[in-house]
């Protein structure tokens, strides 16, 4: 690891299998997957699985076609749900990071807030959903409030601990250099906490997806959650599964997207990020000179 960067070109990890082996493994995975699908399909056609409750892969595939193209009804619900997720996540996580920083930097506030945090941590936050709907009424605002609530906690806790766990010797360095409080915050505490905060944001975005579903299960008006509910009620399980696999894809997108964002923001935690930024800064310096 040491002295990488400009001297040694980054080598391929020796533990990484070769291209042909990887291709073969991928084929094996796909093969296994197909075998499972065929077993499921034939099991259903032979009457071992009730297709009413356990839809066949072929039926699910057809439902994908239906909900996306023939009826094309899923788009609107996706738009509604994802809009709510975005709004609630943004508000909730900004609130979480902001409050986490304030609380983390104030020992007194921290001390007095701690019991409430413990209680809140043990409460299933999503359970507040019916209460919020009752208080704020049906509609987007109560849904956003629910998402905010489930998004708030992980960024809050992570920011709090990130801000508190700055290594003591680095704080001492800043003190010996007579840094102001603001400088210490901006140049040491916040950057140091960024990787932990990003981990919190990742959890929050995942929670936001769950939050919108619960809100829609209860309100049952529109959105992907209510769509799943309606399809299931009508025993159209194949379409319900098409919606759920859509959520799988969205979830995967969130996972990968947050990973990319993390590599971009907390670049120094990843080897490729370090090399990229290091080269870019050297270039900028050379241009300036």
């Amino acid at each position: 690891m040491a002295m990488s960067g400009r001297i040694a070109p980054s080598q391929a990890n020796p533990a990484q299998p070769g291209a042909s082996l990887r291709l073969r493994r991928l084929a094996n995975h796909l093969g296994l997957f197909l075998v499972l699908l065929v077993l499921w399909e034939t099991g259903s056609r032979l009457g071992w699985l009730d297709p009413l409750f356990y839809p066949r892969p072929s039926a699910i595939l057809r439902s994908f076609w239906l909900v996306y193209f023939e009826n094309a009804n899923i788009w609107w619900h996706l738009y509604v749900s994802l809009g709510l997720v975005l709004a609630g996540f943004t508000a909730g996580s900004i609130l979480g990071v902001g409050l986490g920083a304030v609380v983390g930097l104030n020992p007194l506030v921290r001390r007095y807030l701690q019991p409430y945090v413990i209680v809140l941590e043990a409460t299933p936050r999503i359970a507040v959903a019916p209460l919020l709907i009752a208080a704020l009424g049906f509609g987007a605002q109560s849904k956003i409030a629910i998402i905010m609530l489930v998004c708030f906690f992980a960024p809050f806790i992570n920011t709090l601990s990130g801000v508190m766990n700055v290594p003591a010797e680095k704080l001492e360095l800043f003190r010996s250099l007579r840094a102001t409080k603001w400088q210490t915050l901006r140049k040491l505490v916040l950057p140091d906490a960024v990787p932990v905060i990003m981990a919190g944001e990742r959890l929050a975005l995942t929670a936001a997806l769950s939050g919108v579903l619960v809100a829609e299960f209860i309100q049952r008006d529109q959105g992907i959650g209510s769509l799943i509910l309606v399809y299931t009620r009508n025993l159209n399980m194949a379409s319900a599964f098409a919606c759920i696999f859509t959520l799988t894809i969205i979830g995967f997108g969130i996972f990968k997207g947050m990973e990319l964002l993390d590599r971009w923001i907390a670049f120094w935690k990843h080897q490729d990020g370090r090399e990229r930024v290091s080269a870019a800064r050297a270039r900028a310096h050379a241009e300036e000179a």
Partner: peptide
């Protein structure tokens, strides 16, 4: 592990809560 992990990942990225209506039906 190699053959289980893709399914575990799918399960992880799918919001489990989405299964609620289906699990109730089942």
């Amino acid at each position: 592990q190699r053959y289980v992990s893709p399914y575990a990942i799918v399960l992880n990225v799918t919001p489990g809560i989405a299964l609620t209506p289906i699990i109730i039906a089942w």
